[in-house]
Structure formats: C-alpha cells, structure tokens
Design a protein around this nucleic acid. Structure first.
Lengths: 338, 338
DNA sequence: CTGTTAGCGCATTCAG
DNA sequence: CTGAATGCGCTAACAG
C-alpha cells in the first residue's frame, strides 16, 4: 500500500448526496448534462475532499488511456527538442506523452521500455530510431497498438502505421552542391556509424550529390569514431586542395572539427568550409558560427501525432503517404560564407 | 475502443485449463508456488496467445503502480543526463520512470504534467527545479504521493520528502579562489537569472568566495540575458585588469564567451580565464577546452531514488539528511591552465 | 436529469 | 496446490 488511500468518487458522491454515476457525469463533462444545482454540489464536494480522478481506473473501464509513449535513443539535443514538441502536440490533442530513453541505442533498455509502455496500454507509440530489428519489433508490438516511426526508412507495413522522416539525404545532396559552388575542390563527409541508419541516409545523399556535380570533385568518407581529427585536418591542409568542404554528421561533430581547425589556425571559410546538421544551439554560438540545416520540429511532431490521431478516429487532416519526408532548411553562417 | 482487444488472463486460464487465480500466481511468481505441470501449461498458453499483463489493472488492484514520475525543465543537456541515470536506477529497483518536461520552466505545463502523474497514481515523484511556488505545489501534491526534489533548497517538510542538491555554491566559491590563484585581478560572474534558484546558488557561492579571498580582488556580476558579449569582453580587455577570470553560469554560456573571445583574439588563458559548470560535452570539444565542474550523476540519481525506495518500505540504505548535497569535482582544462 | 447495475483486468483472501 | 468470489475506481448503458 503505497499511497495512504486517495479520495474516490464514492466519497464525493456521498458528500454531495448523489450517486457515483452522477459524479462521474459532471466531472467528465460527458454528453450528459446535469442540473446546475447538482453540478455545483458535486464540484464543491470534489474540491473540498481533494478528489483526483484515477485515470488508471478510467482507462481500464473505457479501454483508452489517452497516453502516448515515446522512445528516443537519448534525452538530449535533437531528440530532446523533438520530444518537447511532441509533448506539446499531444497536449493540444488531449493526450499526454510519456518519454522514455533507450539509453543510447541499447536494445535491451529499448525493449524493456517498449514492454512497459505496452503493458500500460498506451493508445499509441512513437519510436525514434529503433535499435531492434524488424522481427524483434514485430514480435513485441504486434498487439495492435499503433506505432509511428521517426526516421524509420522502409519498415514493413504490418509493424508501423507510418513514419515521418527527416530529409537528411536531400540536405546532404544539396550541401555538396553548395560546397562546390563555394569553390571547394575536395569534399569530405565525416560520418558517425554509431547512428547506423541516419548515417546511411546522410552518406547516401552525399554520394548522390557528388555524382550529380557538373564537374567532378575528389571526395572522401571518414568516420568520427576512428578519426584523429588533428592529424586528419593537418593532412588535409598539406594536401593539394585549395579549399576543403566538410559535411559533418551533426553540429557536434562540426564543433569538434571547428575547434581543431581553430587550434591549427586554419582559415575558415577560406581554406576550410564546414556544414553541420540540426541547427543545435552550439552551431550559432561557435566561432566561426556553423552553417547547418534546421529541423522543422513543429512539422515533424505534428505529422507524427496526426498520424496517430487519425488512427484513433479523431477527425484530423493527415498525409496519406506512409513515409512522410520533412525537408530541412539551410541556415548559412560563417563557416561557408565567403 | 482504441486497441482491438488484448488477451487477458481469463483467456490464458481457459487455454491452460486452469483458473485465473492460478494464472495470476504463476505469472507473477508470487509467494505461492504451483506444480511444475501447471506452470508449464500456463506459461505455454500465455506465450502462444501473446498475453501481456495489463499493469493498469494490476496497479488498480493492488494500489501500487511501480511507476515513478520525473519532471524536468527541459529534455536536454544536464537534465537529460540526469534523467537517463534516474531511469537506470529506477529500473534497477524494479520501477520505471516516466519523464515529462515542463517546457522550459513553464508553470502551466509543469502543473499539467504533475496533475497527470498524480492521476496516474505514480508511486513517487521526482521534480527538478519546480517553477511553481510552495503554496501552489503544496495544494497539488498534498495527496500523499512522496516527492523528492532535485536542486530544491529550503522546501517545507510537508511538501517534499527531501531533496538532493548539487553543490553549486561550493563549486563557485572554490572557483573564485582558483581564479585568484591563477593570477586573475578581476573576477566576474556571468549569470542567468532565467534559472532563478540555481543562479542564486551560484551567485551566492561566488560572493562568498570573493569575501573569503586573502587579498581582495575587484569583481562584478552580469547576466547573460542583458549582455552584449562582444562589447562586454572588449571593455574588459581595455580595462586595467591584466587577467580577467570569468565564472560562467554553465558550459553553454562559457562556450559563447569563449567563441566571442576567439573572435576578438583574446589570449586564453593569459588574458582571460574561464570556468563553466556541468562538464557538458561541448566543454571538452571547444577550443580552447573549457575548465568546468563535473556532476556525479550516478550519486545524484541513486540518492534520489533511494529516498523514494526508503519511503516505499524497501530496505535500502539512505541518507538521513533531508537535503543531501552532492559535491561537484573540478575538471581543469585549457581555459585556466597556465 | 439521476440512480442502478454490470463490467474493465487483475490480485487477493479464503475455502476446497 | 487450486479455484470461486470479492473488490480496486471508474465508465457506460439502461431504467426510472
């Protein structure tokens, strides 16, 4: 017995001198109206007794919890921003959002949290960058709970309702063009294979961009993990390239490159140009400030929630496509401006 | 009717040819043992039918949810790290943690989330930097749900079980000494009044430190909000001080100062020294890298959860003090090393 | 309009 | 060891 017994509608009913059904009616403002008098009495009694509805009981009774579960890899940066926005959108629709972290792509934790959410009978699920594979996910989530993926490319229809994906690929594609236009004669993508699928999208966009260049430019791929940044930049500067353009995995990777460039006194943007992704606050506060791609959190969150609401039967406009791609917008700052 | 009807113990019982009570027993590994044979039958049936326990119903029935609610001002940086750690500790104790954000100290959102959590009958609550005042909080949380505060100084006993606070004050106090030792002849605290109570702690520690200096050093207070950093740093450099020591509100503020200093080509650490707080990843990746105070997340999370567990009746060691202060540890980096 | 009743899914006595 | 019965707090018909 954890809590010292909370007030229930039974007590409120007694205090107000009405039946529990009446209490339930007035307190939830259902279709049924009550007389002014009873409303007053009930509200007063509820107020005085400090009544607080037990939503678990309510959910049990009507088989609907008005809860949406969210699982993100980590509570910070881009994921955190998204979560905030999702919470807002959920609230707007009368739901609440419970946020869980998979502890940095840990499949075990992710799985546990998924299980917890399902056991809570959440009405819907939003998952970002599922670390588990198709099969694993399917076996867990086949209960009929609607699932919307964020940044989930090519997931089977029987698992997820749909997905809202960020246009990383396109952003990276355009970045190569942009860096080429700015006069870069060597292009490099500094990835992060830790975030497997997202890294894949970015890399692919970069490759596509390279292939579409009007005049070919040498390029290379490296990964943050096995990279000695200092040595890497030094060699770049001693190489034949007059101006190197780097597409960084995200703003944090960009910041690290930028810091090292500062240390090596590399002239930015003359000898080195840099583009990040996310428009994290660090990108604008760094010196020089980092050009980056901004994420339309509102659009992202709104479409994700809308997909769920639609499934719930709410009458909302929602895109038909299963995989909706939201475009990023370029924010030009000092690392590329010439 | 949101979900297309989930499997219940009734069906499992039928399939296994036993009663629901038996199912409940074997599935929850309660005190009561069952025969090997029934265990097998039940587990098989549950497995095949894809049974998943409805924790809401279970919670309703035993008046215990094994859920802990967490409210943080924002899902990112320090707060995010803490949330991750709290989730871990909660898991370890057999609870799960639902994370909510108050959307950046928004009292309305905070209040709504608190209410939601209370209505869900969470077993316990952990709140970080409550935006609402004493009275407001008391009126909401007086239901008997145990509440532990993080960074809540001087809260009345009838509201919160206790608090675990970070030693910001002490860290700032020591920082002044340190900057003085490094030869700074002007000390300034760049605060952030947006985070009222935390800013207060830091400022106070800074003041104390100043007062305790063996030989007095001129000092000043400014606030991030109404500060033109460029002009501010320029004037500092043109002033009489040979070496300025800045205690920044946190690593992000420090990064902004550092970036501006880089832009103005101010020599760090010779003419300007800088200390941040939080040991955020940016502090180590900036150039020059930022000296800062590291937060013992594990200790923080562990004591917070322990306080709750203790209240729940679990037999755990827990500190007696109502307000437990966890000390920060200094990480020296290039902005102060000479 | 208001009260009565029958569940929601599960845990928990208390008899067999 | 197992099962029938009761209740957790609330909602949803359905009667009055």
């Amino acid at each position: 017995m954890s809590n010292p017994k909370q007030v229930t509608i039974v007590e409120v009913a007694a205090a107000a001198g009405v039946s529990i059904a009446t209490v339930s009616n007035v307190l939830n403002r259902g279709g049924i109206r009550s007389s002014k008098e009873t409303i007053r009495k009930v509200e007063l009694a509820a107020e005085q007794l400090g009544y607080r509805r037990n939503t678990n009981a309510a959910g049990l009774s009507r088989n609907k919890t008005f809860e949406i579960g969210l699982i993100v890899p980590v509570l910070g940066g881009y994921y955190g921003q998204l979560a905030e926005q999702l919470q807002l959108e959920a609230h707007r629709a009368g739901y609440h959002l419970s946020v869980f972290s998979s502890g940095g792509f840990d499949p075990a934790i992710e799985r546990r949290n998924l299980e917890v959410l399902l056991q809570r009978r959440v009405d819907g699920l939003i998952c970002h960058g599922l670390a588990m594979g198709f099969e694993s996910t399917r076996s867990i989530v086949n209960s009929g709970t609607p699932l919307v993926l964020i940044n989930g490319w090519g997931w089977p229809e029987d698992i997820a309702l749909g997905a809202v994906n960020l246009g990383f690929s396109e952003a990276c594609r355009q970045s190569t063009k942009l860096l080429a236009d700015r006069g870069c004669d060597l292009l490099v993508y500094v990835g992060n294979k830790h975030s497997k699928v997202i890294d894949g999208q970015r890399r692919q966009g970069f490759e596509t961009g390279i292939a579409q260049l009007s005049s070919p430019i040498p390029h290379q791929f490296v990964d943050t993990k096995d990279l000695d940044m200092e040595r890497f930049l030094q060699e770049l500067m001693m190489g034949p390239a007059k101006r190197v353009g780097i597409m960084a995995f995200d703003d944090y990777v960009a910041l690290r490159l930028l810091s090292m460039a500062n240390k090596l006194k590399i002239d930015m943007p003359d000898r080195l140009q840099l583009i990040g992704i996310n428009n994290d606050s660090v990108s604008s506060h760094a010196y020089p400030s980092i050009s980056t791609w901004d994420i339309p959190y509102y659009l992202q969150a709104n479409t994700a929630i809308s997909k769920l609401l639609h499934k719930f039967g709410h009458n909302v406009a929602t895109c038909e496509e299963r995989e909706f791609e939201v475009p990023l917008t370029f924010i030009e700052r000092e690392t590329t401006k010439i």
